[in-house]
Design a protein around this nucleic acid. Sequence first.
DNA 1: AGCTCATGGCGAG
DNA 2: TCGCCCTGAGCTG
Length: 268
Amino acid sequence: MPEGHIIHRLAAQNHRAFGSRPVRVSSPQGRFADGAALLDGRTLDGAEAHGKHLFLGFGEDWLHIHLGLYGGFTFAKGEAPEPVGLVRLRMANEEGYADLRGPNTCELLGPWEKMAVHARLGPDPLRADAEPGAAWRRVSRSSTTVAALLMDQKVLAGVGNVYRAEVLFRLGINPHRAGRDLGRAEWDAIWSDLVALMHDGVGAGRIDTVRPEHTPEAMGRPPRVDDHGGEVYVYRRAGMPCLVCGTPVRTESHAARNLFWCPSCQQR
DNA sequence: AGCTCATGGCGAG
DNA sequence: TCGCCCTGAGCTG
């Protein structure tokens, strides 16, 4: 259940756990049996993320993984036990193992195919080579809402429903505004806030967006209890009072995803 | 046991 | 815009 920060973290974790030495690769579930057989015993020598796409390199072959809505990796030390549930991919060495469940995509790509995936993704706030100007060009010409544009991976790669809701709240921007009605300064603020928030997310392994003055400790409120685990302003807080102004947080289905915002703090 | 929901994304119409 | 794909957790009965 990942946004881009988790995928970047997974690239680092996989490299740390399996990089530079042979890895045993299997598909206990059987749905990636052919690919696993091709990779088994080879050396992992590359790991990178672009948005929500993870690439693990074995020479010229790239293992391309997309977790989708509910895919996930688990890492553990020691001998790998009998798989529990549906394990699409298992990697293991003398020290430990990792299991991949429920991915949207788990496939082998050649260098050209990998390039094609990069080509259809927008700039990623977590990548050093990102060119935010490419995203601005699309946003500034679009009549689509800024809420939908932030989720469009061709525009900008790695942002999901949590970062989308939270960055718009932090900047006081109404999610229904058209991209072309945003000013350059507003877009630059969105981009730089995403860079900062998502880097924090890579370090923490969760999404925390509340400023120091609105943390549970600072406000004397109970810490948030939610599956996604971070401290946030509006995501999945529908009907609850806004942490800044007390107005009930609103929600609606927007382009098939749940959108959350504060109607009072986000009027611009 | 069955339903609903989830931090995604694709193709059909 | 809808239906569908991937899987598991947390309800309800």
